[in-house]
């Protein structure tokens, strides 16, 4: 009898533990990871609001992220280890004091992605790391969003975008591409590449149906999008494709180039030889020009559109074009 009651107590106790665990997970409301929870809670509570540190340890991977804010300047790093060996590490810095700093981020992400791609890390490893970050990101955001500075939290997205851009580039056998998301430019979200954002087609169709039923005056861009979607059969549609009905990728890129070029040119008005990225200055760098030569001037003039790339050399930046007269509207 005693033996039976002991077994009964063990079963009841086990069931109680299981039910409590399930209840906690539901209450948490996010996908709460098990291994990192203690680390994460300990670390973010110890550090001030302008410093972030967390580690994810799962499936033989150890992902370490740290970032620090100092007078508007943010430095961050992401280190990934597999079986205790360094797989890769990415450092990402940006200065929010700089004018139009947001417009420069997509180029920085592309640059870092190209560096990561050149390290020849297998796509499987990159995808596994990306999936791990995806699994934990909602929980991390929910835990730190109201405790940490938003600029510090946003660094996670830059690292995620760099990994995603590298994966896309390897999969498509193409150069690294990342178009800055308009929502980031108008402070609606953290940094994201348009290429990584997808809409569910049926959800988009129903949202547009609702919009057309509530509004009698539909603009031509939306009409074109509705017509396109009526024959579109894929389950998802990329943000790139969706947004191109309102602003073409080309116009958007022209707008970004124009804004970045006009902001970087202003700082060199006092330099005797002009700016480091001006025509005639040998090389392409920020700050004052250090060496001006007629050969470099002819070369720069011939490379206004960076074609052919062998002649215009790696790192060529096309000249900024004026946005078209029909002024660009960002949605």
């Amino acid at each position: 009898m005693k033996k039976h009651s002991l077994i009964l107590i063990i079963i009841v106790f086990t069931l109680l533990i299981i039910s409590c665990t399930s209840e906690n997970e539901i209450n948490a409301g996010v996908n709460k990871p098990q291994k990192t929870t203690n680390n994460l809670e300990q670390n973010y509570k110890q550090l001030p609001s302008d410093t972030l540190f967390f580690q994810i340890a799962k499936n033989n991977y150890l992902i370490t992220h740290s970032s620090k804010l100092n007078k508007g300047s943010v430095t961050s790093s992401l280190t990934v280890k597999k079986y205790n060996d360094n797989l890769f590490s990415i450092s990402y810095n940006f200065d929010t004091n700089k004018e139009h700093w947001k417009l420069f981020q997509s180029n920085k992400v592309i640059e870092k992605s190209t560096e990561l791609k050149n390290e020849n890390i297998s796509i499987q490893n990159l995808t596994e790391v990306n999936n791990l970050i995806e699994d934990y990101i909602a929980y991390i955001f929910s835990e730190i969003m109201d405790k940490k500075n938003k600029k510090i939290v946003s660094t996670i997205n830059y690292h995620k975008s760099i990994i995603n851009t590298t994966i896309r580039s390897i999969e498509n056998e193409d150069t690294c591409n990342c178009t800055v998301h308009p929502e980031f430019l108008i402070d609606k979200s953290f940094f994201n590449c348009q290429e990584d954002h997808f809409y569910n087609t049926s959800a988009l169709k129903s949202a547009l149906n609702q919009y057309t039923s509530e509004n009698s005056d539909i603009d031509s861009s939306t009409n074109n999008l509705i017509t396109f979607l009526s024959t579109y059969e894929e389950q998802t549609i990329s943000y790139n494709k969706y947004y191109s009905f309102y602003v073409t990728n080309e116009d958007f890129q022209i707008f970004i180039n124009y804004q970045t070029a006009s902001s970087s040119g202003n700082c060199a008005w006092w330099c005797p030889l002009g700016g480091g990225s001006d025509h005639g200055c040998c090389g392409n760098y920020s700050g004052c020009c250090l060496y001006w030569h007629a050969a470099c001037y002819i070369h720069d003039k011939m490379c206004s559109d960076c074609k052919p790339s062998w002649f215009c050399l790696p790192g060529c930046v096309p000249d900024a074009q004026q946005p078209p007269n029909n002024t660009l509207t960002l949605y």
């Binding site: 040998c282 030569h293 720069d300 062998w310 050399l313």
Partner: peptide, 25 residues
């Protein structure tokens, strides 16, 4: 420089400086 146009190195500053100066000559 044709090789670098297909697989650009991490840092392009030196290549750009020398390249802009030497390519046309």
């Amino acid at each position: 420089i044709v090789y670098w146009s297909y697989s650009p190195p991490n840092s392009t500053n030196t290549i750009r400086f020398i390249g802009e100066l030497l390519t046309i000559p």
